[in-house]
Design a protein around this nucleic acid. Structure first.
Length: 266
DNA sequence: AACATAAGCAACCGCTCCGTT
DNA sequence: CAACGGAGCGGTTGCTTATGT
């Protein structure tokens, strides 16, 4: 026996929302809030919709301060870097782009940004359109940055490890290493807290580092003044993307560390 | 103008997570 | 501790629009 459906599918409307439905939903939420119960909301609001559908409509279209339209170069960069770091965690990526929704970013990535990055392959071309060359400004998506903070909606006490997909190279990196700093060895590691010395921070931060390229069969990551190696090359999501990034070693930064990479002297 | 095809995007589906009982 | 149920998420679908023949 499967689980009970979230709503009576025979009696709910599906498909595109009408302006009247939008108005009903918006007015109800403006007046009453969501009440933390999406399942009960449609009935209260007088809508013949599934609660999940209402939630999606509100989050992706009706809620205030949503940004529509073209993504900026800066937004492109953030999406690319975060995708490289954590993969298709669209909700986390969306949390870094005010006014953008996870669905928006997901669609944008799948339909435009990925192609822009890959220089548009022949197989995905509009058949009759002339072949576009690879974007000459492609490298601008990967400026050489060493440290940029991203605030993840993660409670400081939680481990960041689950945010990293299994196939991501970070999974194969040691969680601790050493580097030289001012003549003495520094130990660093990925801890499970936040970077503030006070602790109790409500967000956990992630730092960008640079993907430094290949050495023998190893991926080298560097950033914040140190370097780290991965001996396993198992990360294989977006194979084409990986090839692109590897082939651009001089210009492609890559994520190195979670800032909660903390330094502490031996 | 009519048709074919690709691109874009809103919405749905099904799964996992997590709080509650 | 297990079962349940709601929220949230990512993948996918399918409709609409744009573009070329």
């Amino acid at each position: 026996m499967g689980r009970a459906p979230c709503c009576d599918k025979a009696n709910v409307k599906k498909g595109p929302w009408s302006p009247e439905e939008d108005t009903k939903l918006k007015e109800f939420i403006d007046k009453n809030g969501t009440g933390g119960n999406w399942i009960a909301l449609p009935q209260k609001a007088g809508l013949k919709r599934c609660g999940k559908s209402c939630r999606l409509r509100w989050l992706n279209y009706l809620r205030p301060n949503l940004k529509h339209g073209e993504f900026s170069e800066e937004e492109d960069r953030i999406i690319c870097n975060l995708f490289a770091a954590i993969g298709s965690r669209w909700s986390i990526i969306a949390s870094q782009l005010p006014g953008r929704t996870d669905n928006d970013i997901k669609n944008y990535w799948n339909t435009k940004l990925k192609k822009k990055l890959l220089g548009i392959t022949s197989t995905s071309q509009r058949k009759t359109k002339p072949q576009q060359p690879a974007d000459p400004d492609q490298h601008l998506l990967f400026p050489s940055i060493t440290h940029q903070e991203i605030h993840l909606p993660t409670v400081g006490s939680q481990s960041l490890a689950p945010l990293i997909p299994d196939q991501h190279p970070l999974q194969h990196l040691p969680y601790h290493g050493t580097r030289e700093s001012n003549g003495s060895m520094i130990t660093f590691g990925i801890d499970q807290g936040c970077s503030s010395s006070e602790g109790n921070c409500s967000t956990t931060q992630l730092n960008y580092g640079n993907y430094g390229g290949m050495k023998d069969d190893r991926l080298i990551f560097s950033g914040g003044g140190f370097e780290i190696e991965s001996t396993e090359l198992e990360y294989n999501y977006e194979e084409e993307l990986k090839q692109l990034l590897i082939s651009n070693t001089t210009i492609s930064p890559w994520i190195l560390s979670l800032n909660s990479i903390t330094d502490y002297k031996n």
